[in-house]
């Protein structure tokens, strides 16, 4: 294994509902890096993200994924989260009746407990939250609302960013968090990612747009097509995709 590789994916195959979606993914993300993954609709970007987060509907049929040298795929979703993996969902989920504040604190405390840190009470937690809220331009009113319930598309994405900011993961995977955001919110995402950019953690950004990458400056850009990474390059690859589309690199669709 490469030294200081935070995430190391080898020949990863995964199916959903018996259909193979990931067809041999190889990807290494080192601490301190930001990777972007682009690719056509349905190419498997979210599938990859969900496999890494531990979604029970996706079945890994071959290959491996190691996180900090450990077998990521053998861990439960909650173990992954407690170890520092965070997925910002493309489609965040609503939890009826549970306030955002309660949810966030439960998540923080679950992770703190795992690290052997003290639990935060409601008051201490709110204090710690204040500054993060400011960053995403929110007031307290979003905290007393049930998680994502009745949130607009952009608000749901902001809520994912808030969780990212609060949980401070080691490996953040952002699945189209920039889609549906207004220009200010987009900058917020970029700022939050930049803030988290430290020598000991890494971010994977799944996106369709060059714009977010101009704010974030990824180290590597990958193109995922039909379940494989078909091209990797620098930031200029994203610009090239923006201009030319995917046709020139698109892999033949799998024969189902």
């Amino acid at each position: 294994m490469t030294r200081n590789a935070l995430l190391e994916i080898r020949d990863l195959h995964a199916t959903v509902e018996g259909q193979e979606i990931l067809r041999g993914i190889d990807l290494t993300v080192r601490a301190g890096e930001v990777h972007a993954i682009m690719g056509p609709n349905g190419s498997g970007k979210s599938t990859l993200a969900q496999v890494l987060a531990g979604h029970p509907a996706y079945v890994v049929t071959a290959g491996s994924a190691r996180y900090e040298g450990k077998d990521l795929l053998a861990m439960t979703p909650e173990e992954r989260a407690r170890e520092g993996v965070f997925l910002a969902f493309q489609y965040p989920v609503a939890i009826r009746g549970i306030t955002n504040a309660y949810f966030l604190r439960a998540a923080v405390n679950a992770i703190r407990k795992h690290r052997g840190e003290e639990q935060l009470g409601p008051v201490e937690f709110m204090d710690a939250l204040e500054e993060k809220l400011k960053v995403i331009g929110w007031d307290d009113s979003y905290l007393s609302r049930p998680v994502n319930e009745g949130f607009s598309g952009g608000e749901k994405k902001r809520n994912e960013i808030l969780q990212l900011a609060v949980l401070e993961p080691k490996l953040a995977i952002l699945d189209e968090t920039d889609s549906g955001l207004d220009i200010d919110a987009l900058k917020t995402v970029a700022q939050t990612v930049q803030k988290l950019r430290r020598p000991d953690n890494a971010t994977v950004i799944v996106t369709h747009y060059y714009r977010i990458l101009t704010h974030i400056q990824p180290d590597v850009v990958h193109v995922l097509s039909a379940g494989r990474i078909v091209k990797s390059g620098g930031k200029e690859l994203a610009l090239e995709l923006e201009e030319k589309g995917y046709d020139w690199i698109r892999e033949a669709a799998p024969v189902a």
Binding site: A53, G54, H55, P56, T76, P77, E78, R80, A81, R82, L87, F89, P92, V93, A94, I95, F103, A106, A107, A110, I111, H114, Q163, L167
Partner: peptide
């Protein structure tokens, strides 16, 4: 919903 909560570290 259960998976979403687990993905945030809850048992």
């Amino acid at each position: 919903a259960l998976y979403y909560l687990r993905s945030r570290g809850l048992s």
